[in-house]
Design a protein around this nucleic acid. Structure first.
Length: 285
DNA sequence: TGCCAGGCCGAAA
DNA sequence: TTTCGGCATGGC
């Protein structure tokens, strides 16, 4: 065990599943292990995360406050779910994906992840980001393995598109470089974005090439923890097509959390017709 | 071979 | 203001 590695147990917070929170598509750096734990690096700190009904077990670097902040454990998700689950589809989404918490991700990493996400699928996004970390990130030794921290903008800013060929990211690669250069040149400042109203922050980040409304909202929700953002995508358009209440939910203070519940549930239950049946019940009721 | 995947962009209507 | 094709890539 490294000298900085600690074992931390967090219990009594509820509404948390490592599996759901780390693999629901909001982040892409955690790898599931055979024992059910998850291995990854957050803000340069490697860790193994495990959760069950008794709480969360963390073995790794970074202290208790560091991981409590990442998982946003102080926010009362039980209350949010109670307020939200007033119809059949919402209740089902809460039951199915109620272990999801919106993580407080590192902003630069989240921005890159959702630049890569456009017109892409989760396994491939994960693969591209893994290659990016391995090619350009700082290696971190943990439990006898080599993990990789996410490369900072300064590492990417001086590269050329050709250097990113191994990522197989296609037309998205130049977007990463442009974002890195904007951050390094001071044209995009995450601290400044924190002080802005949502609309102004969205407008600012959309000035980057490759950032439209969807990528901007994903970045604001997952990277800046603006829980009011609703990153509407193809799946949520499917929800809206059968579920009129989706329009109202977009304006909720916790719209992002609700969107993530619905996204996870609908992605799993669209093809078997469950979503359509529940939405129909809501219309009749 | 064709279509789709947590879009964006610029041109044309 | 809306619509549409192209953009890289990989899996099915």
């Amino acid at each position: 065990m490294n000298k900085n590695t600690q074992k931390i147990r967090l219990s009594g917070y509820g509404c948390f599943s490592a599996e759901q929170s780390l693999l629901c598509g909001q982040c892409f750096q955690w790898e599931k292990q055979e024992d059910g734990s998850f291995l990854g690096v957050h803000r340069g700190s490697p860790a193994r995360i495990f959760s069950d009904e008794t709480g969360i077990l963390i073995s790794g670097e970074g202290g208790e406050a560091f991981w409590k902040d990442y998982f946003d454990l102080e926010l009362d998700y039980g209350k949010i779910k109670n307020d939200f689950a007033s119809d059949a589809l919402s209740r089902e989404a809460c039951t199915y994906s109620g272990g999801i918490r919106i993580l407080k991700q590192e902003p630069w990493e989240a921005l890159c992840a959702f630049l890569i996400s456009q017109c892409n699928n989760i396994p491939r996004i994960t693969s591209i980001l893994h290659t990016l970390r391995k090619q350009f990130g700082q290696p971190v030794q943990f439990e006898g393995r080599t993990l990789y921290a996410f490369p900072g903008p300064e590492r990417l800013a001086n590269l050329e598109t050709e250097d990113l060929k191994p990522l197989r990211a296609g037309y998205r690669a130049p977007y990463l470089l442009a974002a890195a250069r904007a951050v390094c040149a001071g044209n995009l400042c995450f601290e400044a974005l924190r002080g802005m109203e949502t609309e102004k922050a969205r407008e600012t980040v959309q000035q980057l090439p490759g950032v439209g409304r969807k990528v901007a909202d994903c970045f604001l929700l997952y990277g800046m923890h603006d829980l009011s953002c609703w990153p509407e995508d193809t799946w949520m358009k499917k929800v809206a097509s059968v579920y009129p209440r989706a329009e109202k939910l977009k304006k909720d203070k916790y719209a992002g959390i609700i969107q993530q519940y619905l996204f996870y549930f609908v992605r799993a239950h669209w093809e078997d017709g469950t979503v359509q049946r529940l939405a129909e019940m809501d219309r009749i009721g």
